[in-house]
């Protein structure tokens, strides 16, 4: 079973169809969205396809070593950085097609006016472990 990473972006992805910031939704719309996301994860747990998921704070820092026994330097966050990841979900599914199907469902979470957001999610396959046996050696 291949694993896939579903990435949600604060920014960096193409604009969603229903592109109204969450801060401008009604309380009912916020509740409906949260419920949809929770139910989605719960359903994947039941089907045995859910691995993990987490959300990230929008704050972040770039860090690099300076070498020479000096402490690392930090910088940022950079406003001009294009990509800002909001969270991820890891799924373990039978096929790439199934991963696309699930990402599509997640992208249709309801937003403003109760309409699906149709936001762009990034789907990234994990590099897999080498197989224990291959036809070359067996």
């Amino acid at each position: 079973m291949p694993k896939f990473l579903l990435l949600k972006h604060y920014r960096g992805a193409p604009a969603a169809v229903n592109d109204v910031p969450m801060a401008e939704w009604t309380p009912e719309e916020v509740d409906a969205h949260i419920r949809y996301m929770r139910d989605f994860a719960a359903r994947l747990e039941e089907t045995g396809e859910y691995v993990s998921g987490d959300a990230l704070s929008p704050d972040g820092t770039f860090v690099r070593s300076q070498g020479g026994g000096r402490p690392p330097i930090t910088d940022g966050p950079f406003a001009e950085t294009k990509d800002l990841i909001a969270g991820w979900m890891i799924i373990d599914v039978d096929s790439h097609d199934r991963a696309v199907e699930l990402a599509g469902e997640l992208s249709a979470a309801p937003g403003a006016n109760g309409e699906p957001i149709h936001e762009w999610l990034e789907l990234r396959p994990f590099l897999q472990q080498p197989p224990a046996s291959t036809c070359h050696t067996d």
Partner: peptide, 22 residues
């Protein structure tokens, strides 16, 4: 909400923002 350190708190504060705005 944007600065919240956990999801439950973020959701709660987002709802509060929505409620006041409404």
């Amino acid at each position: 909400a944007a600065a919240a350190s956990n999801l439950a708190e973020r959701h709660h504060l987002t709802r509060q923002a929505a409620r006041v705005r409404q």
